[in-house]
Simulated assay, not measured.
Amino acid sequence: MSAALLATGLRYAPAAILDDLGIAVIRTWLRDTWGAWSRTHRRIVIASGLSAVQERCVLAHELEHVYADDADCSNPLARVRQEQRADLEASRKLIAISDLAEVAQWAGDPHTAARELCVTERLLEVRLNDLRGEGWPWRPQDGSRIAG
């Protein structure tokens, strides 16, 4: 098994995993999305001109579609669920709790934290929502899950 497949957090490299899986990544102009997985053609198309962080996040998201063997979905509700699942799983791999805990000790805002974690602010928000109630900074506290 490739070391890239086992890494998480700052060491997580979705481009290397896609390469190991033989999934082609095509960069081109896209009008209304940053990326898409084509199960039929076994390739990922991503928007040209993305920053390195944006590309890493898009590839992680699309890789989750690959793992789930997602196909084009005409059902809007099912499509939303696929997208939410891909975001959640990508955020879990891109943002290890140990990395988040380290950055949370000094970063004063989510923008700084996202930059240090090499993720978009949106995927940081997805990860923080996944961990809601756990006392992470930049999030309103709803009270304790145990006492609360």
Rank of each mutant, 00 (worst) to 15 (best):
V119N: 09
A86W: 01
L59H: 07
Q105C: 08
A113K: 03
R81F: 12
R27A: 15
W37R: 01
I95L: 12
R31M: 06
H111W: 06
R115N: 15
E62A: 00
T120W: 03
A104I: 00
V53N: 14
G49K: 05
A60Q: 03
V58M: 01
I26R: 13
A101D: 11
D70T: 03
D20E: 12
S144A: 05
E89L: 14
A4H: 05
I146P: 01
G22R: 05
W29I: 14
W138H: 03
D72L: 13
C73A: 13
E89R: 13
G148W: 07
C73Y: 11
R42W: 13
V80T: 07
R56C: 04
P137W: 01
R81Q: 13
A68V: 04
R115M: 15
I44S: 05
P110E: 13
A47I: 02
R79P: 09
T112G: 11
H111G: 04
A68S: 14
R85C: 04
W136Y: 04
A47P: 06
I44D: 11
G9C: 04
L10D: 12
I23Q: 09
V126M: 07
H111P: 00
L77H: 10
A90K: 03
S91E: 00
A7E: 10
W136R: 00
T112Q: 15
A7C: 14
E64F: 02
T33Y: 00
A114T: 10
V80E: 12
T8R: 14
A3L: 13
S91Y: 00
V126D: 08
V103P: 04
H41M: 11
S98L: 11
Q54L: 10
Q82Y: 10
L30D: 08
G148F: 00
S38A: 02
A52K: 08
D87N: 09
A60P: 11
V66D: 04
A71M: 15
W138V: 00
Y67K: 15
A147S: 09
T8D: 15
G35D: 09
L10G: 13
A16H: 03
V58E: 05
Q84H: 13
L21V: 07
I23M: 08
